[in-house]
Amino acid sequence: MIRNILGSVVALAGAAAAVLSPFRDWYDGRPGHDYRVRDLFEGITATSSGVMVSLFLPLLVAAVLTVAGVALRSRLVVALAGVLTLGFTVLWMVRQGQAAGSLAVDPDGSGLQWGVALALGGGLLMLIGSLVMSGRRGRRRGPDRVGGTPDYDARTAPYPTSGYQHPDTWPPTQEPGPSVQTSPLPEPEPDPYTGPEDPRRHDGP
């Protein structure tokens, strides 16, 4: 629980930094929202861009993924948002380096500026947050029987179970031991008036 809270706070801080970064200067006083997304694939130009078609768009998508991942407690979604933020930032650095010939941070404020640092830091915070989060735990296995009684395990039983038979089992099995032979027909009962038959009546004098 504590890990999820800490990881969520770190990841959300990274998302906030990533969304804020396009409104800061990225290179030579040019803000990030002035770079078009298509420039990342076609080359950096001096053409201005609208906010929703600039670098702000992929960073906003990454921030939304971070919020969704925190709400769902999904480490994978938060990590994906961090990779997306770092990927677009590094791709911009490659294209800007190709357009300018090199990338540098000059003391006079030219070159790479704070907007790039915010984007890179935001992506790293998202990845760190995904590592700190413990994620969603699997559900514990409940009782196997409908009535709430778990299945009986003879290995963990505190008493012998060799002669045990569940009452629902049919037909019942006979317990081991000596068997008693019984007659298939019932014996005739003696007549209460005459009593048992005397065998001497048939023998004669």
Score class of each variant (00 low, 15 high):
residue 53 V to Q: 14
residue 111 G to K: 00
residue 102 S to T: 14
residue 117 A to N: 07
residue 157 A to C: 15
residue 119 A to S: 15
residue 118 L to Q: 15
residue 143 P to Y: 09
residue 52 M to P: 11
residue 155 R to Q: 07
residue 160 P to G: 15
residue 144 D to R: 13
residue 65 L to D: 02
residue 119 A to L: 10
residue 137 R to F: 01
residue 67 V to T: 01
residue 113 Q to S: 14
residue 82 G to S: 03
residue 51 V to P: 01
residue 92 W to T: 08
residue 49 S to I: 12
residue 64 V to S: 13
residue 116 V to N: 13
residue 127 L to M: 07
residue 76 L to D: 12
residue 71 A to R: 05
residue 59 L to I: 00
residue 54 S to P: 06
residue 97 G to M: 06
residue 69 G to I: 04
residue 74 S to W: 00
residue 71 A to N: 03
residue 109 G to A: 03
residue 57 L to P: 04
residue 137 R to P: 10
residue 70 V to D: 00
residue 51 V to D: 12
residue 72 L to C: 08
residue 160 P to Q: 10
residue 65 L to T: 01
residue 63 A to C: 01
residue 87 G to H: 08
residue 60 L to H: 06
residue 146 V to D: 10
residue 105 V to W: 02
residue 80 L to N: 06
residue 81 A to C: 07
residue 94 V to Q: 14
residue 73 R to D: 02
residue 135 G to F: 00
residue 102 S to V: 11
residue 73 R to W: 02
residue 89 T to Y: 02
residue 138 G to R: 14
residue 141 R to A: 07
residue 84 L to I: 09
residue 97 G to Y: 04
residue 46 A to C: 08
residue 119 A to I: 09
residue 104 A to M: 10
residue 131 L to I: 14
residue 72 L to H: 02
residue 72 L to N: 10
residue 66 T to Y: 02
residue 72 L to R: 15
residue 58 P to N: 10
residue 82 G to I: 03
residue 46 A to Q: 15
residue 154 A to F: 11
residue 44 I to C: 09
residue 145 R to H: 10
residue 76 L to K: 12
residue 64 V to C: 14
residue 61 V to E: 05
residue 120 L to V: 15
residue 66 T to V: 04
residue 157 A to F: 13
residue 121 G to H: 11
residue 58 P to A: 08
residue 140 R to P: 03
residue 89 T to K: 05
residue 56 F to Q: 07
residue 142 G to F: 03
residue 64 V to P: 08
residue 146 V to F: 12
residue 90 V to F: 13
residue 158 P to L: 11
residue 129 G to E: 03
residue 151 D to F: 12
residue 146 V to L: 12
residue 78 V to M: 01
residue 103 L to M: 12
residue 145 R to V: 00
residue 69 G to S: 04
residue 91 L to W: 09
residue 150 P to A: 05
residue 90 V to W: 08
residue 132 V to S: 04
residue 151 D to S: 13
residue 112 L to H: 04
residue 159 Y to S: 15
residue 57 L to M: 15
residue 143 P to N: 05
residue 145 R to E: 11
residue 145 R to L: 08
residue 144 D to H: 07
residue 113 Q to F: 12
residue 156 T to K: 09
residue 142 G to C: 05
